[in-house]
Nucleic acid binder design. Structure first.
Lengths: 212, 212
DNA sequence: TAAATTAGCGCACAACTGTACGCTCAAATT
DNA sequence: AATTTGAGCGTACAGTTGTGCGCTAATTTA
């Protein structure tokens, strides 16, 4: 029962589609909230999600064919959130500030404030479901491509080197994010600094090979 | 029943401890074999392991308190195997061949021929069990320290830079291993080459910052 | 040789899972 | 106003899980 309060007029104001969307949202949000540091998609049961969303187990099927279909939706949502973040980061860079440190800071912000979303990507990246792995890989590949484009156009690096550099950087950034996710504020700052320096190693190294 | 053949003298030749060790091995091996691309430690049930090991579910408790205790054993074994590999790689390097390419090749060999062990480390690195995550992290940290020592003594790099470099390299290597694990032979070769070049970026970059 | 230890077993149980089926009743369509 | 649609529910069922308990039978110890 999504709304059992007979005195709430807002419900009667909702069309069927609106109501369905609302329940769908409740399911998705409930699932994200279940994905804390102790749970993964494969360990969350349909019944649990339904319980958290406040619907009957069987009602779940009105929205998703599977738990897996819900999982893909979650991966897509998390990936989208990250992509939006990247755009935001780029705009900050244009407004001044180093490319690397701005990106690192923005990324770390995301990891902290959307930890369940990031955790999802992290886990399913090496998880047991080939479909989820593929979905996460697509998101990461997207990242790498965007960074490759940015690098190629802003540094004049040849495209192959730019791609190698972008790939290495994204991998390091994700690795650092994984460590940051259950670190203290102080540790996180430390990690961010190390990451910064390591990214500079890569940039320098790529620049060196470009000049040969 | 480990051996129900009354006409097999080898059994009667075994002491109780030997027999117990054998069963313990059977459990561990069974667990490793269950950890294919579709299964993770948390999705493998005690009963499944027992079934695969050919013992009754309740007999499992004669050897491990928990499934988790078995898990930690598996992580330790896999980490040990990797460490032994590193030693082997170092001896190959001393016998000639580049540090980077030799290490990369050795690592890739391990990933291919011990894929279930590597998968375990990979998954539990970002898995749901804090204890497993910590165990894997210890193994990786061990890796980084060894590489730091090696780098510091063979390149004269200052210790902080050597540590940064080693950390970045290990992370990239693990990332590449993750991709290699379900790749074709041709893709793997491609990945190895990219990884090689990326590691050189890092080495060059670190060298650059050392000379400032 | 007698007694103690113990690896392994079968049985039992409560908890939980996914999902099939048919119902309700409000919204949408005709 | 009459009909169709469909989101959500309750019941039900077979399957699987972890684990407590007490037994057997063989090795080890005394």
């Amino acid at each position: 029962m999504v709304n059992s309060n007979a005195f709430e007029p807002a419900v009667s104001m909702m069309t069927r589609q609106q109501q369905k969307q609302k329940t769908r949202r409740a399911i998705i949000d409930a699932a994200f909230n279940l994905l804390d540091e102790q749970r993964s998609l494969s360990s969350v049961s349909l019944r649990e999600v339904a319980r958290a969303a406040g619907i009957a187990p069987t009602s779940f099927y009105r929205h998703f064919k599977d738990i897996d279909e819900l999982g893909l939706t979650l991966v897509d949502e998390a990936g989208l959130a990250l992509r939006q973040l990247m755009r935001q980061a780029r705009s900050r860079i244009d407004a001044g500030g180093g490319v690397i440190s701005t990106s690192v800071n923005t990324f770390m912000e995301f990891v902290v404030s959307n930890s369940n979303e990031f955790r999802l990507l992290l886990r399913e990246h090496s998880g047991t479901s080939p479909a989820f792995r593929a979905a996460v890989l697509r998101e990461i590949q997207h990242f790498i491509e965007e960074l490759t484009d940015y690098t190629a156009s802003h540094t004049g690096l040849n495209r192959q080197l730019a791609s190698l550099q972008a790939e290495a950087m994204v991998k390091l950034v994700f690795s650092a994010g994984a460590e940051a996710i259950d670190a203290t504020v102080a540790q996180r700052k430390e990690h961010a600094q190390r990451l910064n320096q390591q990214l500079r190693f890569i940039a320098r190294g790529a620049a060196f090979y470009a000049s040969k």
